[in-house]
Structures are given as structure tokens and as C-alpha cells.
Design a protein around this nucleic acid. Structure first.
Lengths: 227, 227
DNA sequence: CATATACGATACAGTGTGTATGCTAAAGTT
DNA sequence: AACTTTAGCATACACACTGTATCGTATATG
């Protein structure tokens, strides 16, 4: 995470290299914590729009210029706070594709119950105007989670749970995009009960062999598509 | 469309009722066209952020106050322009669920090749801070398209193409959300070639009977799920 | 004619941005 | 201890957009 953060111009709180000796007065790490807490707090209580450098500086009891020293703009600050909050993807192998998918979607559900929900819309808007920010979000948030799910699909293929000829990236979108879609447009609520339904659909779409999913595998009636 | 527009406070260009006599000087309809054209042009060339009342007024050669007379803010203006651009959903019955889905997704692909692509991110961010705007977008853009696809699924069920026990709203999200997701995060390109893949997946997820999809229907081996 | 609204042209306060400029504080270097 | 470099605070400033409020003038209805 430290390294990927450095893709931002200033590098946020991770600007200080790990071992290298640094010239000059070191940054006060307590301030970083105060700022991140302030950002997450404002996100929760007042939403993305209320996250301004002025607001955060007031709330974190530091100067506005201190914020500019660490992040080029509010987008980068929010991105940093969100990545910090979400942490890394555990990416466990639970033994079956169904279990892996359920775990991944449950994690996604949990994330949207937190400050991420208040941040996505605004973040997405800023990503449209800042290619570097978009890249950072994709690399730090999206990519690792997608890769972990992609690996789960491949394991499922190796186990013979699902068919081989699949566009996994499309399946990934179909499985996860509904969460973002609902969060952004609000046409349906995001519930934890949608996860099993999506998993069912994705597994059928992936041509799951119903026999394989149970213990033994009889009825080798194959549901493979021809294309 | 006229009536749903009136849900906005000012009502945009549709404020003048159809038959009723109006007091005072009537609005200049040419200005409405100039403004919408200006908005779509700025969206295409410079993106959502560049759409400001000042910019649009300058480009449409009208006073900024004229804009405020018609729309409460830029969000409503952009929403109006987008709805105006997208028009209504044709919602044809092409005889098979596959054909209907392919048509719907192709329409979605086309929409994202237009100014919608530049507008979604910003619009979505403003929706998060304006419940009325969010409702307008949902009612005028999302709802009719979803309802038309929902009807296609129901026809498919009536024809026996897919299974009965389905959460159609989840399928709708899985089919369409990937377009928005990709447009907003840019992790994958939106191509027309993703549409048939998504349709294949959705149909399998809906438990399509492969025999039914061909002309005759033999092999009534049912693929229904139990849940 | 009176009335009511549209349109243009300002002006204005408010808010957030991004940068610049002093100043003091805290570290390492010579 | 003096020097150098950066951190952090406190300002100030120009810039852009917003939203509202006035004007005066134009154009419709009754």
C-alpha cells in the first residue's frame, strides 16, 4: 500500500520513505491520523461535498497549508482515507467458488455500509477529471479485489466447478457492478440478501455443474455452451 | 416526458403548459435549444465540470439569469439535456428474450458513446446531494428502461424460455450495471462486443432452456433451480 | 391602456481553490 | 553552535463559480 500511494503527486502521509534518513523536521504522524479521522467523520456525517480543505483543517485542528503540503487536492485526500479505511483484500480460498464469491460480495456489502458509500459518487466524479486519481483508485482499490475474485474463478475452473470458456472479467462486473450501481443511483437498496441471489446467478452464468457443487458428482449432463 | 420534467422546481423548458394561456411575455423557445446544444457540446468537449452557468450562458449567447429562470442549478440543466438527448425507450417485442436483451444492451452501449458518458459521473455525484434530482433521473431515465427490460423478462417467462423463480431486478442490475461501472471506473473499455457475452450470461443465469431457444423444443430436461 | 412575465446587464456577497509569504519549530549536518 | 532543510501555523491574495437581487427594456394577454 505504501508504494502504491506514492503514485499520487505528493504521496500523502506515505511520503516519508521507510528506512531512508530524511532531511529537515519530520512530519507529525499524529496529524495524519487526525486528518484521516476528520475526513471519514465528515464523509459519514455530511457527505463528500462537505469534505473541503477548510473543513478538514478546522476539524483536525491544523492549518490548511499543512493539508496542501501532503495532498494536491481533496480528491487525493479522500482517496487516501478510503484506501486506508478499506485496507487490503484478504482473498481467502474457502474451497469452493460459491463460498469465495459469497465472501467477496459480503465484503463488498460491508464496504458500502461504511464511509465508502458517501465517497463513491464524489470520487467517481473527480476520477473523470483526474486520470492519475482514477489510476490510483483502480490500482489500490479495484484491481486487488478483482484479481482475488478472478483467482477464485480460475480455481473453480481448475476444480471443474464451472466451464472453461468464460470471459471472467464480464462475470466480475456482473457480480460486483450492481453494488456500485445501486449505491450511485439508489433505485434499489443494497442488502446482504442480494448477495446469495447474485452468487446463484453468476454460478449459473458460469455454467456450474450442479452435481459438482454437492459432494459427489453424478449426472454428468454437461451444461456447457458451444461458443 | 413533459410531465416528469415538471418534477424539477422550475420545470426547465417544459414549464409552459400545453394549452393554457400564459400571462406575460412567453419564453423564447430558440433559447432553450441553444442552451441544450451548448450543454451537450460542452459535455462532449470538456466534460461535466466545464458545464457552468457562466460557460453555458456565454456559449448560448444568453444572460446567466435566463438560465436561473429555467433551472435551479447546473445539475438540473444537465439532467434536462441528457433526458432530452436520450429520448424515450422504444421497448419493442422482438419475439425472444435474447433479441430483446441484445437490443436493450446495444441501446445502452450507444448511449454511453454519446454525451451521457461525460455526464454520468458528475450527475451521479450531484444526485448524492439532491434527492429531487436523484428521483428525477431515476424516474425519467432509469425507470422506463428498466420497466421495458422487466417486461421482456416476463414475456420470456410466459413463453417458457426461462425459469419462473427469478429476482428479475437483480438480473436487470447484472445486465446493465457493468456499463455504468465501466464508464465510471474505466477499468475496462465499454465495447459492443461485451453485450452478447452479457446476454449469454444473463440467459444462463435465468435458466434458459437451450431447446426453447432454437426453433422446436425437445429435450425438456429442466434446468430449474430449487430455491 | 394595465398587467405580468421574459430577457439582458449588471452588481454583490459567499464559498472554496490554489498559491505565495512570513514566521517559528524540529530534525540532521558540519 | 551555526547551518541547512523541512514541518507546521497564520495570513493574504487572485480566481472561479454560485445564488440572489436589481435595473431597464421587450413582448405577450385582457
Amino acid at each position: 500500500m505504501r508504494s502504491s500511494i506514492k503514485k499520487l503527486k505528493h504521496g500523502g502521509a506515505g511520503a516519508t520513505p521507510a528506512g531512508a534518513a530524511v532531511l529537515g523536521r519530520p512530519r507529525n504522524p499524529r496529524i495524519d491520523g487526525d486528518i484521516v479521522r476528520a475526513v471519514l467523520g465528515v464523509l459519514r456525517s455530511s457527505g463528500y461535498r462537505a469534505v473541503t480543505f477548510e473543513n478538514i483543517a478546522r476539524r483536525a485542528k491544523c492549518a490548511r497549508t499543512t493539508l496542501y503540503r501532503r495532498w494536491p487536492g481533496k480528491r487525493h485526500l479522500v482517496a487516501f482515507a478510503i484506501v486506508h479505511e478499506l485496507g487490503l483484500e484478504p482473498a481467502p480460498d474457502l474451497g469452493s467458488l460459491r463460498a469465495d464469491l459469497e465472501a467477496a460480495l459480503h465484503t463488498l456489502f460491508t464496504a458500502f455500509a461504511g464511509p465508502l458509500r458517501s465517497a463513491v459518487a464524489g470520487l467517481v466524479a473527480d476520477m473523470a477529471h483526474d486520470a492519475a486519481l482514477a489510476g490510483f483508485i483502480r490500482d489500490a482499490v479495484l484491481a486487488p479485489r478483482r484479481e482475488s475474485m478472478r483467482a477464485a474463478f480460475r480455481r473453480g475452473q481448475a476444480r471443474g466447478e464451472i466451464m472453461e470458456n468464460l470471459d471472467i472479467d464480464v462475470l466480475l462486473d456482473m457480480a460486483t457492478a450492481p453494488y456500485y450501481f445501486r449505491a450511485l443511483f439508489g433505485h434499489e437498496r443494497i442488502t446482504d440478501s442480494m448477495s446469495p441471489k447474485i452468487v446463484d446467478c453468476v454460478l449459473r452464468a458460469a455454467g456450474i455443474r450442479r452435481a459438482t457443487e454437492r459432494t459427489a458428482h453424478r449426472s454428468h449432463r454437461r451444461l456447457r455452451a458451444r461458443s
